[in-house]
């Protein structure tokens, strides 16, 4: 319990750190921070003198440290500024897009973990076998080919040539809402393109972890005590090997999100990645920074979750 509380407390300085990094980025952006803070439609109504007064009120003429704190106050109240392009609150825009991104990112992560770990364990149990080598080579291949290349090939082969799957979009227009076959068929290609490098990643880690665990002292002891190999495997090897998988989950999240920028824009998938990419093209700095801040916060929370899970599955971690 103490461990979990300690972790929870740690989140706050981390969050502050994330805001500092984001704010520094925001200040590197060319452009007027005033525009980033105010509803552009309100601003259009103001005279120059009023704008100057508003600058003072918002503290934009203050030194950067003070400005950071006033910005932070706004962020704490949920004001991430307004998009240059749409004039809408950034927070609202990002929240709208989260479900679509989660739909493909989470699916990709689950598939990657399931397939990767299964294959990884299989490989480790048959070390140096034909399949082990095959999977290993596959894993190198999967992390060495740019994921947009997988996406293009997927479109070309499965959507254009074979016509098994739709090319783009999230749903066929007018096909209804909810979890439909139409939605699933639209998800297959983007999810696969996102998942492939991660399958490799899980696979290699799982294989390594099982090999490690197999030769760990307590496993040797168990074996020496005459425990059946099956029991050794399920009771000692697998359990110890699976714990580090939580770390892989955490570590793969930023990559998954980075990948969604490319994959969502290829497939016109209406998630955060597509919106973020368009924000980049539009030089919509408030939206860019809002997206970054929120994504980093999500990763941080996922880290927290995995730390807590760690604490639960691996009692050793609570030592301090």
């Amino acid at each position: 319990m103490r461990y979990i509380i300690k972790r929870l407390v740690m989140v706050f300085p981390m969050l502050i750190g994330i805001t500092i990094v984001s704010y520094t980025m925001l200040n590197l952006a060319p452009g007027d921070p005033m525009t980033a803070m105010m509803n552009p439609e309100d601003m259009a109504m103001l005279s120059d003198a009023q704008i100057e007064a508003e600058r003072d009120r918002l503290g934009l003429n203050d030194p950067i440290i003070l400005r950071y704190f006033s910005w932070l106050r706004e962020v704490a109240q949920g004001n991430l500024g307004y998009s240059y392009k749409t004039g809408r609150p950034v927070l609202e825009m990002v929240i709208e897009r989260i479900p679509a991104t989660i739909a493909i990112a989470a699916t990709a992560e689950i598939i990657a973990a399931t397939v990767g770990i299964t294959v990884g364990i299989y490989s480790a149990l048959r070390q140096y076998s034909f399949f082990d080598n095959l999977f290993t080579i596959f894993s190198f291949f999967a992390v060495s080919v740019p994921n947009f290349f997988f996406a293009l090939m997927g479109i070309f082969i499965f959507a254009v040539q074979l016509q098994w799957l739709p090319v783009f979009g999230m749903r066929t227009p007018g096909s209804g809402s909810g979890l439909t076959w139409d939605l699933i068929s639209h998800m297959v290609l983007p999810v696969t393109a996102l998942a492939l490098p991660h399958i490799a990643s899980y696979m290699r880690y799982a294989r390594g972890a099982v090999l490690d665990a197999k030769s760990a002292d307590h496993v040797r002891t168990a074996r020496a005590k005459g425990l059946a190999e099956k029991k050794v495997f399920s009771g000692h090897v697998l359990r110890n090997a699976m714990i580090p998988m939580i770390t892989i989950f955490t570590l793969s999240l930023p990559g998954l999100i980075g990948g969604s920028f490319v994959i969502e824009s290829i497939f016109s998938w209406p998630g955060i990645g597509l919106m973020g990419f368009e924000a980049l093209q539009n030089r919509d700095y408030p939206l860019q920074l809002g997206v970054t801040l929120i994504l980093a916060t999500l990763v941080l929370l996922a880290n927290l979750l995995s730390d807590i899970l760690y604490g639960i599955v691996d009692p050793r971690i609570r030592y301090d």
Partner: peptide
Amino acid sequence: DSMVVRFGDGPTLTAALEAQE
């Protein structure tokens, strides 16, 4: 009865045209 304009990037739309989407 109806008309739909779908948004996408150039090469992706090209693929969709070829796939008759």
